[in-house]
Amino acid sequence: MTKILVIEDNNLMREMVLEILESRGFEAVGAENGQVGIQLAIAQIPDLILSDVRMPEQNGLQVFAVLRSHPATASIPFIFMTASDMQKALELKADGYLQKPCSVAEMLGTIATQLEKPTASNPQHQKVQDNSAPSNLGLPARNRKSRFEIASFCWQ
């Protein structure tokens, strides 16, 4: 099962993203700030990281720098989610960016794009979880709507 770490200090936002990811067949893990996010990333080695930029303890830009410098986490796809610091995020050359607010479809599309890319540590690796992208979900899961899916979920 594909594991995604969500680093977001807004409790409601983090819980909504986790619920959406879990409803799509991902294993989703949440961190309430950058410091906890770094610890979880190193301990659990997720397949992908979604991170807010503005957070206490360590912001997303600092989290990105720390994880890129750590051998075990350097090649994990990293997607920034931000409402106001997009220029700073773009300068760091992360793997993806989501401008808040964004739709569930935009988030899932960005995740799917990153998971389908070969990784630097294993160029032969391709996404093998058939249930990880919305287009590959079985009919019941695809038709099941999250209670949060009606509105855009990414806001500040």
Rank of each mutant, 00 (worst) to 15 (best):
I4V: 12
I4S: 04
V6C: 09
V6L: 11
I7C: 06
E8N: 05
D9W: 05
D9V: 08
N11K: 12
N11I: 15
L12T: 11
M13K: 08
E15A: 13
E22C: 12
S23Y: 09
S23C: 10
R24I: 12
F26I: 10
E27M: 13
A28C: 09
V29S: 06
G30V: 06
N33S: 01
G34M: 00
V36F: 04
I38W: 02
L40S: 14
L40H: 08
A43Y: 05
A43T: 02
D47P: 07
D47K: 08
D47T: 06
I49Q: 04
L50F: 10
S51Y: 12
D52N: 11
D52S: 10
D52E: 15
V53Y: 04
R54H: 13
M55I: 10
M55Q: 07
P56Y: 08
E57M: 14
Q58D: 08
L61W: 05
Q62N: 10
F64A: 03
F64M: 05
A65D: 11
L67T: 03
S69K: 14
H70Q: 10
P71K: 06
P71V: 01
A72R: 10
A72G: 12
T73W: 00
A74I: 04
S75L: 03
P77S: 11
F78P: 00
I79Q: 01
T82C: 03
T82H: 06
T82F: 04
S84L: 13
M86L: 13
A89W: 03
L90K: 07
L92M: 06
K93S: 15
D95Q: 11
Y97E: 09
K100D: 03
K100M: 08
P101V: 15
S103R: 04
S103I: 07
V104P: 01
A105D: 14
A105G: 12
L108R: 00
G109D: 15
I111E: 01
E116N: 14
K117N: 14
P118I: 00
T119F: 02
A120R: 07
N122Y: 05
P123N: 08
H125S: 09
H125W: 11
Q126M: 03
V128H: 09
V128R: 13
Q129L: 10
D130T: 09
D130S: 11
N131M: 11
S132N: 09
A133E: 02
N136L: 12
N136Y: 03
L137H: 08
L137Y: 07
G138S: 14
G138F: 13
